[in-house]
Write a protein that binds this DNA or RNA. Structure first.
Lengths: 229, 229, 229, 229
DNA sequence: GATGAATGAGGATTCATTCAT
DNA sequence: CATGAATGAATCCTCATTCAT
């Protein structure tokens, strides 16, 4: 942030670099905002902090986003863009068993979203949904719905192919959804405060969850729960 | 809510109303604060709103809680006090199968906590953990730990009695925990914005989850997932 | 403050004591107020503190004084009452030398006012004069004027009897006044923060001041200052 | 007031006004705060008033001083910085009689401090000492001590050179100090409410005081007070 | 009378937003 | 375009004052 002052008697190369930074600004601001919003919540995050973290001045932030609220919306929008197209396509062409497909879907989700900053969006939406109802609705439509459909398609495939037993689709979707949402939330909140001994390793957690879910879903000699009184 | 214990004395007729109101105040304020903090978050909730919702003036709130932050802490503390004692005891004496025991534990959790306003505390802690590190630690110790131990005891019982297969205890606990945390979060956030058709009925969700988990946990002819590549 | 509750099945003696306390209330409140106003200033003193120091409730204070400002005025008025009558009379009949008379006047002032809580009024008036112009005027008339006249009478006597040299009366009065005002102020403010080694003993300070003043005032072979360039 | 040093650079024309204002701000605020604190006391002065008097908004004040209390401390510090260095030096090299030296010291004090707004600091410290114990201690060390030593050096010189009679040094210092403190206090408090006829002219008051003190201090045919009973 | 719970106007402080440079 | 000084609405909190008991 101080360095820019030093570039006055500039050669062309530096000029170019500055140009590039200029174009990168909005993205840097969105990253900074995401980080802070996730960490401290919308209200408790000061725009000046966001600007500082992005290496610009407070005024500059308002050059790109007309208000703090717009910044928030932009953060959400920027982090939900059509990753589903790609994901859908991959899964459309998936050839293996549906169990593997589910395993692959969740693992991929973790690698591409869950483990990145983007997962913070989930925490953010959960925390701030009531304060931004329009965003919450938007998020439902743009993220939850496509995601749910993707999960639903997997489950349907399993049932259609006789791999999974028939279950209520609505709750089936939630069952697959739950570990993802939990992981994203936990990572950005209480997770940091759990004692070392119980601290969760995401990949292991996910693997265990998938295992349980698949045991619960798959046909074969599925055990009936021991009693039902 | 705990304060009501205090008003059972003799000389009831005398200066009754004022006294009774005084004793009720903290509880009313805590309830109001819980509602608003859960809904809007800590920072976005104005103390005056809390006071108004509790039916008192701004100043009165500060008669009982020295600051907004103390109010927040009190809200968290008031809603986690010794609910585990009772729960523990009941389960200590549980006689049926461990599957039933788990079913009973989760159902009870929903009835006594999940379905009440107290579940908002979970959302609150997730949303604000980073802004109140000491509270987060406190919550870990006072809520998460006892809860985890309770779950752990159930799982251990199942394994000891040959009802459940052996699994890594740490992740076993998380698997049972996840649906509860999810339900509490969801209910207070995105849940309200999901389209009617996919809206979740907590009891049904929980039943489905328990079913899956038990199928995954229980011994007997447990199906191995169809493929493991 | 709690004790009063215990006096319910009261005998006559206690009844009388309470009666006496009741009459003493205003005085106790004025004392408490004086102490705190002197110490912390008018604005920084809370009426609740005053009430507590006087051993009554906040409400009771307002039974005797209709507002904080009225309490302040009452404090000032209560501490300037006609001590001058007595003092005047004593000095009127003074028989010794005027030097002794001055010495006596200042010593007496210290014993009767300066060394008591009443001296705090001087600090108070100095500190708050601008915020209570009417009180300041009142104080001028009721305290400063009579006091000045008393001093003036002494000086006049000294000059009339050829004991003192002739000096401008106005400044003569201030010269006698200064040590008293200084002592009263100092005692209630910076005095407490001066290092042990330089801490002032009021009686010694006063004696030294009187000595200097008398050397400066008295006729005889008064030394002219060494140079006047 | 000290800050003006900073604005003597080259590139004056460029973005001048804003910059210059920024540099002037703290000084303007300190001046305004001094005026109001002296007049109304710390507690009774509203920060908004200070800001308005300095010609800025409430918020701007907090850009330069993190709290009202810090502003107060800054006011005190800003008005006592190294005035003694200069004063000391002048007196170190003083050539005339010690009586003249004392006369010069007090006259100079009046011209440079007593007659300026800075004298208000004395009133301020006296009024608020108990509310700012750390500042009071700071003031003792930074102002009273150096001042006392300066006075002490003068008195010692007078005694060493056989010009003054031997007196207890501690009280000698207070005797010289008293008129200065009195003048500063009086001017900012009761002075304004004394009737025209007795209103004090500082220079004349000081001259009279010095005269009396010197008569009292100087050797030569010093008159013993007429009687000592 | 006495109490202390309740009130709410008033004041300190924060921070999103503007705008001159 | 970028800056950061300035603004003032918004909010927490205090405390003199009231009033039901």
């Amino acid at each position: 942030m101080v360095f820019s002052k030093l570039l006055c008697n500039a050669q062309d190369g530096l000029q170019a670099k500055r140009e590039r930074r200029k174009e990168a600004r909005p993205g840097e601001l969105l990253d900074a905002a995401l980080t802070l919003f996730v960490d401290k919540g919308f209200a408790a995050t000061r725009v000046e902090e966001v600007a500082k973290l992005a290496g610009v001045s407070k005024g500059t932030l308002f050059l790109y986003f007309s208000s703090k609220e717009e910044l928030f919306k932009a953060v959400v929008r920027a982090n939900i863009s059509g990753r589903f197209a790609e994901w859908n396509e991959e899964l459309e062409n998936f050839e293996g068993s549906t169990a593997d497909m589910l395993r692959y879907a969740l693992t991929t989700w973790w690698e591409r979203l869950g483990s990145t900053q983007a997962s913070g969006i989930i925490k953010l939406m959960m925390s701030e949904a009531h304060n931004f109802p329009d965003l919450a609705t938007f998020y439902q439509q743009e993220v939850m719905q496509p995601g749910n459909q993707l999960i639903q398609r997997i489950l349907q495939r399993g049932m259609d192919r006789g791999e999974f037993r028939a279950i209520n689709m609505k709750y089936g979707v939630y069952i697959v959804l739950t570990p993802m949402l939990f992981l994203a939330m936990w990572k950005h909140s209480m997770g940091a405060y759990s004692p070392e001994s119980t601290r969760l390793v995401p990949e292991e957690y996910l693997a265990t969850q998938i295992d349980i879910i698949l045991r619960g879903l798959c046909l074969g000699d599925a055990p009936t729960p021991l009693s039902s009184t």
